[in-house]
Simulated assay, not measured.
Amino acid sequence: MRTVSAAESAPTTYPWAVHAQELRVKAGRHLAVDGLDLALDTGVHGLLGPNGAGKTTLMRALATVIRPAGGRLTMLGETVDGRADLRRLRRGLGYLPQQFGFYPRFTVREFVEYMAWLKEMPKAEIPGAVQRSIDRVGLAAKAGARMKTLSGGMLRRAGIAQAIVNDPAVLLLDEPTVGLDPEQRLDFRELLRDIGVDSCVLVSTHLVEDVVAACSDVIVMNEGGLVHQGAVDTLIAQGGEGDAGDSPAERGYSALLRRHRSAVAR
């Protein structure tokens, strides 16, 4: 029997979990992401921007739902383009879209099990992984309930459970806190921080306070391009008392967008 070296058993590492260069992505015929440069590694990254900024289109491209129209996108060492075989990459991804489909008569457990099977998880690992993900989102008491009986917040938590069931190296969450009550949002922030220790997590949201509480850095998009990427404190420093917003972070966000739009209009 051959001894396995430490190098062979160590997890695969990449220069960046997500690396986009001059990335262009279409939403229908519209170029929703235009020339985006972005590099993300381990940690929790918040994605902010007004409606129509291109956030959801970017998330769909990172989830390999849609292919880039141009530029270069590399994720977990795999190039994402029209020729790539994405099955191996998808095993390392977790994705929660704004709206996700499910069979109404599935129980929560059956739904998460089904998603684990689609992600080609080893059969022997699925039962334990499903139970852990359900426990982590606080749905253990509802594991046997049919999906069609769940409230909006519970459905969202079931969606988060399927996204994390495979312990993804890259986790993409599009508006994950919609429908969650304040206590559930606090639990969710703690879960994000826990996952972000070992994974690259990108959270798209309109709630600036969630970014401040849970994220190590923040990305701001507008009209398909990158406006800002940096620490949360850097975003806060952009604003002042005269800027719109109910918190320092909201004032920094609104001030940043205002200055960007003024510069573009010149």
Rank of each mutant, 00 (worst) to 15 (best):
M1N: 12
R2E: 13
R2M: 12
V4Q: 09
S5Y: 05
E8V: 09
E8S: 11
T12M: 15
T12C: 09
Y14L: 10
Y14T: 15
P15K: 08
W16R: 09
W16D: 00
W16S: 02
A17I: 07
H19N: 07
A20M: 04
E22V: 00
E22G: 14
L23M: 04
V25A: 04
K26W: 12
A27S: 06
L36V: 12
D37A: 10
L38G: 10
A39L: 12
L40K: 06
L40I: 00
L47G: 03
L47T: 01
L48F: 07
L48H: 06
L48V: 01
G49I: 04
G49Q: 12
G49P: 02
N51R: 02
G54Y: 06
T57C: 06
L58S: 05
A61T: 07
L62I: 03
A63Q: 01
I66Q: 14
R67E: 05
A69H: 10
R72T: 08
T74A: 06
T74R: 08
T74V: 12
E78G: 01
T79V: 10
G82C: 09
R83F: 07
R87L: 02
R88S: 11
L93D: 04
L96Y: 02
Q98G: 04
Q99W: 06
F100P: 00
G101Q: 06
Y103A: 11
R105Q: 07
R109A: 15
V112I: 07
L118K: 13
A124R: 14
I126F: 14
A129M: 01
Q131L: 13
Q131F: 06
D135G: 04
D135A: 13
V137R: 03
L139F: 06
A140R: 10
A140Q: 13
A140D: 08
A141G: 05
G144I: 12
G144K: 14
A145M: 04
L150R: 01
G152R: 01
L155R: 08
L155K: 08
R157Q: 02
D167L: 09
D167K: 11
D167C: 09
A169P: 09
L173D: 01
L173R: 00
D174Y: 02
D174I: 11
D174S: 00
D174H: 05
E175Y: 00
G179L: 02
L180E: 01
D181A: 03
P182G: 01
P182C: 00
F188S: 07
R189A: 02
E190M: 14
L191F: 07
D194A: 12
S199I: 09
V201S: 06
V203Y: 04
V203K: 04
S204M: 06
H206Q: 02
H206W: 00
H206K: 00
L207I: 04
E209D: 09
A214V: 09
C215E: 07
V220A: 03
N222R: 14
G224D: 11
V227S: 12
H228S: 13
H228T: 12
H228F: 13
A231T: 15
D233N: 13
L235W: 03
A237Q: 08
Q238G: 09
Q238V: 05
A244I: 15
A244Y: 15
A244C: 14
G245S: 04
G245Y: 06
D246P: 03
A249G: 11
E250T: 10
R251E: 15
Y253G: 03
S254H: 15
S254E: 11
A255V: 09
L257W: 08
R258L: 15
H260S: 11
R261D: 01
R261V: 05
S262D: 14
S262P: 03
A263Q: 14
